[in-house]
Design a protein around this nucleic acid. Structure first.
Lengths: 139, 139
DNA sequence: TATGTCGTTTACGTAAACGTAAAGGTGTCT
DNA sequence: AGACACCTTTACGTTTACGTAAACGACATA
């Protein structure tokens, strides 16, 4: 429950450098404790790091990811704040839905490319002479 | 069928600057014709531009997107080439599947945040005194 | 003829997201 | 004591993806 991690440990686990992790701290996205000089990360920071990297994979800037994490944290505020949050969440959701549609379109395109590739491979393997340039049987 | 576009036209349509479009040409991702000095884009380039921007939205670098477009174009090559293409396509597909999973996870997180937000808003609207700081009905 | 609009090339500038030293502290084997 | 392994701060460097300005050409319109 009170498990902690060193910077190198996290770096290895997530495939990033310590520099990267410190950089995220500079941006205020991670807030490790200190044991003397050394940074000590708790589960909370580990989760945040995971969220940051997920955001990156999805093409969000660190600033955008930062905002999203604040949405996840959703502190209890006053009504106005909460409505603002709700709207921001809706906006992000729409953005993510858009990305999902983009992904599906890209997957379809890839599927078509793959199909053409397969068909062509089938031709070439069955009757190699079907190629635009005959392979030549050697000799 | 032989519809063409000016650079400003494309820029307006896709919400980018002409500089951006020229930059993609520098990278060899667009290959407009010329009418005198002026660039003339065909449907092919329009499609490519759309693919480039889709790639961007999904967090791919221009280099990666470039590779993906080459996969879509899938020219007829020899067997070795075709197998390489097939494998590259499979790799991209896996990557896109990963991103889709990331998106679904993010959507779930947002859903939870939204739910908490809604619940809290319901509380505050029903009985405002439930807040940490009572709103006060005005003096 | 002047004022726009639309395009061109060339070139330096910039924001984001780190990379890469350099120089040093702390602990622990051997 | 010496050698690692791991951490620290400071600071300049680098890549990507354009932004922005300068200076110009071509054409239409008032």
């Amino acid at each position: 429950m009170t498990e902690t991690f060193g910077i190198g440990e996290l770096a290895r686990e997530f495939g990033v450098t310590a520099r990267t992790i410190r950089f995220y701290e500079d941006l205020g996205m991670l807030t490790p404790l200190r044991e003397g000089q050394k940074r000590v990360y708790r589960t909370r920071d580990r989760v945040r790091l995971k969220l940051i990297l997920r955001g990156k994979r999805l093409g969000f800037s660190l600033a955008e990811t930062r905002e999203m994490i604040e949405l996840y944290d959703a502190p209890a505020g006053e009504v106005g704040q909460l409505r603002l949050f709700r709207d921001k969440i809706a906006a992000r959701r729409a953005e993510l839905d858009g990305k999902r549609r983009d992904i599906e379109a890209a997957l379809k395109d890839l599927g078509r490319a793959e199909e053409r590739c397969r068909a062509r491979l089938g031709e070439l393997e069955d009757r190699p002479e079907a190629g635009a340039e005959a392979p030549g049987l050697g000799g």
